[in-house]
Simulated assay, not measured.
Amino acid sequence: MSASCCGPAKKPAVDPRWRRALWIALIVNAVMFLGELGAGEIANSRALQADALDFFADSANYAISLGVAGMALVWRASAALVKGLTLTALGIYVIVGALIAAFDGSSPQPAIMGGVGLAALAANVGVALMLYRFREGDTNMRSVWICSRNDAIANLAVVAAALGVFGSGTAWPDLIVAAIMAMLGITGGIKIIRLAVSELTHEPMPAEAHR
């Protein structure tokens, strides 16, 4: 990179549209986390609980993105690295939870799953469309887009799981979707980690970081 891209004196300007979009996404995800967590507990749905944890992780990710917006690239890439690691860890947690639930034997309530899944889908599609214009930005911006895109795909899977539970009368569709959501989280997290490491490798630390 050129010298003009490095150092504290050349911090990137923060697009006010980007900051506004992040605030909206943060509020939407925080509200959906609380609502879906309670619904997942009531419906005994692992897929809803996994999706609620994903909403929580995204809320934290948006808050981190707001905190580092306008900082030097090294700090934005570092924040993206933390987000990638968190997303990967969340995926592993969901897989372990699904394996444990497979031996539980209880069946979730498809009506609650479907209704909440559709509400979550509407929320995530709205956020994804709002953030679509920023998908080609730096790692921090792209990581937010990846999370939003994955969430919308996951919500479609939750609705499909609700139909599967209703049709089969078993918990397997719910558990399978939870595993799929976990793999989406892991693959998305790994992609963010690779992008962040690439930027950190090629971007010198700003002067104040060495003091």
Rank of each mutant, 00 (worst) to 15 (best):
Met1Gln: 07
Gly7Ala: 12
Pro8Ile: 15
Pro8Arg: 11
Lys11Trp: 00
Val14Ile: 10
Asp15Ile: 06
Trp18His: 03
Arg20Met: 04
Ala21Tyr: 03
Ala21Pro: 01
Leu22Asp: 03
Trp23Leu: 05
Ala25Leu: 03
Ala25Gly: 12
Ile27Cys: 07
Val28Glu: 05
Asn29Trp: 00
Ala30Asn: 04
Met32Lys: 00
Phe33Met: 03
Glu36Met: 11
Gly38Met: 12
Ala39Gln: 10
Gly40Arg: 13
Glu41Tyr: 12
Ala43Arg: 09
Asn44Thr: 11
Ser45Ala: 08
Asp51Ile: 04
Ala52Asn: 11
Asp54Cys: 03
Phe56Tyr: 10
Asp58Phe: 00
Ala60Ile: 08
Asn61Ala: 12
Tyr62Val: 09
Tyr62Gly: 01
Ala63Leu: 15
Ser65Cys: 10
Leu66Glu: 05
Val68His: 08
Met71Leu: 14
Ala72Trp: 02
Leu73Ala: 14
Val74Leu: 03
Trp75Tyr: 15
Arg76Lys: 14
Ala77Pro: 13
Ala79Pro: 00
Ala80Tyr: 11
Leu81His: 11
Val82Met: 14
Leu85Val: 15
Thr86Phe: 08
Thr86Tyr: 07
Thr88His: 15
Thr88Lys: 15
Ala89Pro: 13
Gly91Phe: 03
Gly91Cys: 11
Ile92Phe: 08
Val94Met: 14
Val94Pro: 06
Val96Ser: 08
Gly97Ile: 00
Ala98Gln: 10
Ala98Asn: 13
Ala98Phe: 07
Ile100Trp: 06
Ile100His: 09
Ala101Leu: 12
Ala101Gly: 09
Ala102Trp: 09
Asp104Ile: 02
Pro108Glu: 04
Ile112Leu: 08
Met113Val: 04
Met113Ala: 02
Ala119Met: 11
Ala119Phe: 01
Ala120Phe: 00
Leu121His: 07
Leu121Val: 02
Ala123Gly: 05
Gly126Glu: 02
Ala128His: 05
Met130Val: 06
Met130Asn: 07
Arg133Asn: 07
Phe134Asp: 09
Arg135Phe: 06
Glu136Val: 14
Asp138Glu: 14
Asp138Phe: 02
Thr139Tyr: 02
Arg142Ala: 13
Ser143Cys: 10
Ile146His: 08
Cys147Gly: 07
Ala152Asn: 00
Ala152Glu: 00
Asn155Trp: 00
Asn155Ser: 03
Leu156Phe: 11
Leu156His: 08
Ala157Asn: 03
Val158Pro: 05
Ala161Tyr: 03
Ala161Glu: 11
Ala162Phe: 06
Ala162Lys: 11
Leu163Ser: 13
Ser168Glu: 09
Thr170Leu: 05
Pro173Asn: 05
Asp174Pro: 02
Asp174Met: 02
Val177Glu: 10
Val177Ile: 12
Met181Tyr: 00
Ala182Asp: 02
Ala182Val: 10
Ala182His: 06
Met183Val: 10
Leu184Thr: 05
Gly185His: 07
Gly185Glu: 04
Gly185Leu: 08
Ile186Cys: 05
Thr187His: 08
Thr187Tyr: 10
Thr187Gly: 02
Gly189Glu: 04
Ile190Leu: 12
Lys191Ser: 12
Lys191Val: 10
Lys191Ala: 13
Ile192Leu: 02
Arg194Leu: 13
Leu195Glu: 15
Leu195Ser: 13
Leu195Lys: 09
Ala196Met: 03
Val197Ile: 15
Val197Ala: 13
Ser198Gly: 15
Glu199Val: 14
Leu200Gly: 07
Leu200Ile: 15
His202Tyr: 09
Pro204Phe: 04
Pro204Cys: 10
Pro206Arg: 04
Pro206Phe: 09
Glu208Arg: 05
Glu208Leu: 07
His210Val: 03
Arg211Lys: 05
